[in-house]
Design a protein around this nucleic acid. Structure first.
Lengths: 355, 355
DNA sequence: GTAAAAAATGTGCTCGTACACATTAATATT
DNA sequence: AATATTAATGTGTACGAGCACATTTTTTAC
């Protein structure tokens, strides 16, 4: 059987050199005669040697510091999941020398972001994981990190101009497209759909625009523009009276409103409104498995949730950086997570059961 | 910082014993005074020591042989995915001493199964991964393996009476339930649904019955029995004329037939029928991302597929056995994989991108 | 031709854990 | 009290890769 695991020692013996020489060939440390080099290289090929990553990391007790620049979960609960994901990854990878330091900023305050990003940069980390909530402000940091050669991984929000080591998240456009499919599947008759952006700085939130774009283009592509009408609404703070007013008005203007698509994780705000006004003929789709969303999903007020797998995003972010720093693997520049469709009936298998 | 990793040596020093003693405490190898035992145990708690699994497996060069008893992918293409999943796992885990030997049987031939299962048993493996296609025949093997103390993991088909180390797969009942939800969501008007079992030995296929049960119970639970009618059909070999005849007949008997639920991975057979007869007012839901199914999903003849994640099943099966054999971890007796809802629009993120 | 410099190759220790073996301390037996 | 027996504890090495350092071989300089 070829089942035997090939070690450096085996190669050394077969090539009639010492393992030191094999090591030099493997890592291009020079000081090897061309003759020996070729012989060793050939044998490595033949026996298709694969280094034992386990033994490798055991040796080097280098600690890799990763700075995780993420929004405060206490301010927006959405960010709890990514945080727990990266904590999980850190726990798993501690023995490989991975150490993660969170730099937590207020997602509604640019200065807070600037401060924390600066702190993170000054800590001279070996890698950075970042949720780039503020599009404009983050760009100059990318330059700094590129100069300093600090690899950085983005998640949640895709930034086209950046050249990160990797982006982890969903294809926003496609997720809007998917939502349109689901709603038209459930509503075969002509009607009106509402795209609701809740409490967001829209011009600075490219991914939300992408979602709306995908949503609208579905109707174009499928030639359904005559059948369905799409309206949009930028809603402010749900606690204000304006919020309710805006919704009342849109319902009045569009009596055939049959579905609402919420582009972020705050579908529960709309659900609260629907429940309060005892409206049960409007379907509702949103994002993410927050407890409040799950509550309304269970009560059939929310019909579907698209799981952005935020925990997985944090988890895979750290994993990607580890693969790069520790294992020196090739990193895929974009890692799209699946667009999970969640409903009452399959919910339990997605809650706390992933990655 | 608590960032320092705790080693056995650290514990030994703090407890003023040698690392040998700590080792004996950790592994209950006896020969330790009660006094020392308690002291060490306390310090292990305090410093919350976690063994370095990396170093652990590096030491022991034991090879664990796992026998994988699975159906032949050449006979039923469904089984390609589990096979590739377990191959992927083997590759990842080779350096932990995991070696997987496939024992491949004909899923339509009991004798072939008996022969291979016997061979696998005689090879005296350290663990067994099994797709228990033949319910009755597999039971005696469970007894044998229990006597020999060979841990076995089941996947794909849940067997209630068995007490495997772990079952990996989906909750069949719930998946039927989910399908009912999707269909009623898309078909708000009263109509008839067909549950189709294609080319299966139904009495011996508990998981297919469970699917139907879940499907039917959805209507009961939601008080929709008056609105929707459910009929069932056991279809034989799709290549025979009978197959088409049966379908024709059921359509004739139920003119308001609006959806078909195929309980296994052969939805493409019905799709072929629907396409051939140019029927586009019957929705179709089935299982698994086989190339043929994907083709019809792309063409909108199949509306949804439930992904049973067969690749993941093979992968996690080997992972579970490795966790048990190599890492001595606690194993969860049931590992339900999520009920992924797949449609044209989110398909690409599930194809070859998992586990 | 010899010594010095450079190139090539070899040796040995480290990482954290597990286990075999060696050693010491505490009882039991005569 | 001396020896045998058992219990308790300590010591040392292996696993595979990586790297510093030691050693050998070849080349260069005079």
């Amino acid at each position: 059987m070829k089942n035997k695991i090939v070690r450096i020692k085996d190669i050394a013996e077969k090539a009639e050199v010492s393992k030191g020489t094999v090591d030099r060939v493997l890592h291009n440390r020079g000081r090897v005669s061309e003759e020996a080099r070729e012989r060793v290289l050939k044998i490595i090929q033949e026996m298709n040697y694969e280094p034992n990553l386990i033994a490798r990391t055991l040796k080097s007790n280098k600690v890799y510091h990763i700075a995780a620049i993420i929004p405060d979960p206490l301010i927006d609960p959405y960010w709890e999941a990514p945080k727990s994901g990266l904590e999980k990854a850190e726990k798993e990878l501690r023995h490989y020398g991975i150490s993660v330091t969170p730099f937590i900023f207020n997602p509604y305050n640019v200065d807070s972001f600037l401060k924390k990003a600066k702190e993170a940069t000054q800590s001279e980390p070996d890698g950075i994981l970042l949720a780039p909530v503020f599009y404009r402000e983050v760009l100059s940091f990318f330059d700094q990190w590129n100069v300093k050669r600090i690899p950085f991984v983005l998640f949640n929000t895709q930034i086209p101009d950046a050249a990160p080591l990797s982006y982890i998240g969903q294809d926003s456009y496609q997720s809007g497209y998917l939502v349109a499919k689901l709603l038209t599947f459930g509503l075969p008759e002509p009607c009106t759909f509402l795209v609701a952006h809740i409490n967001e700085d829209i011009p600075n939130s490219a991914h939300l625009i992408k979602k709306e774009e995908g949503f609208r283009n579905y109707f174009v592509d499928k030639k359904l523009e005559d059948k369905y009408k799409v309206v949009r609404l930028e809603l402010g703070n749900p606690d204000s009276g304006l919020f309710t007013e805006q919704l009342n008005k849109v319902r009045q203007q569009h009596p055939d409103l049959k579905a609402i698509f919420v582009t972020n994780s705050k579908a529960y705000e709309i659900a609260f409104y629907l429940e309060k006004h005892r409206i049960d003929n409007i379907k509702l789709i949103g994002y993410d498995l927050l407890p409040k969303n799950l509550y309304y999903l269970e009560n059939s007020i929310i019909n579907f949730l698209i799981n952005q797998n935020p925990k997985g995003q944090g988890y895979w972010g750290i994993q990607q950086l580890t693969d790069f720093l520790v294992f020196k693997k090739e990193i895929q520049p974009i890692k799209y997570l699946p667009l999970d469709i969640i409903t009452q009936e399959n919910l339990s298998y997605y809650v706390d059961n992933e990655a």
